[in-house]
């Protein structure tokens, strides 16, 4: 069993920047993400519907799949002990096949709550070229010490 070395709270400082993640988006990226999230709406797999009905440039990444990409981006950084508690994102522009989406993030808050849970606030930006497509505020719990595990928290000890 190999749990990778976790990111600990005391190793995080406001202003820290997360490594960028760059992904080439294909039609498969969009369709696979939509079907994985059981989102059967045609604008996520039907080019003619997306362009002629919705009036957008192509099929586009669906909402739950964007959430899953944000989660992946965060846990790439924290490791498996990182536990996302809260996520809020605004989609300002769509992500289309042919786009290169780039995730970047900056730590905006490092706190410990009354239950002793260590929290990191991260502002994630999803851009395509000069376009800022989505902005996401995430609150992710990370271990406060080597023997702490945010996933063990329940009830009053988990306040996301």
């Amino acid at each position: 069993m190999n749990v990778p070395t976790p990111l600990l709270l005391d190793a995080v400082t406001v202003g820290d920047r997360l490594p960028e993640l760059s992904v080439e988006v294909t039609p498969t990226t969009v369709v696979l993400g939509a079907l994985a999230s059981r989102d059967w709406r045609p604008m996520h797999h039907d080019y003619k519907f997306a362009t002629e009905r919705n009036g957008v440039a192509d099929i586009f990444l669906n909402t739950p799949n964007q959430a899953a990409w944000f989660e992946r981006y965060l846990t790439d950084w924290t490791g498996p002990l990182g536990r996302v508690g809260r996520m809020k994102f605004r989609m300002k522009d769509s992500i289309f096949p042919g786009d290169t989406m780039v995730f970047s993030g900056e730590v905006t808050e490092v706190t410990t709550d009354d239950a002793g849970c260590g929290w990191v606030g991260v502002e994630v930006t999803l851009t395509v070229g000069e376009r800022t497509c989505s902005s996401c505020s995430v609150r992710v719990a990370v271990p406060s010490s080597a023997d702490d595990n945010p996933w063990a928290r329940r009830g009053d000890r988990w306040v996301p």
């Binding site: 749990v3 990778p4 696979l32 993400g33 899953a68 992946r72 790439d76």
Partner: peptide, 25 residues
């Protein structure tokens, strides 16, 4: 569906791929 989502987002988090890691964490 977990595997589908992991594949759709190229997510290698061992928490979802490795039963032993999941059990411990």
């Amino acid at each position: 569906y977990t595997y589908n989502t992991l594949a759709a987002t190229q997510n290698g988090n061992p928490l979802y791929w490795d039963d032993a890691v999941a059990e411990q964490v």
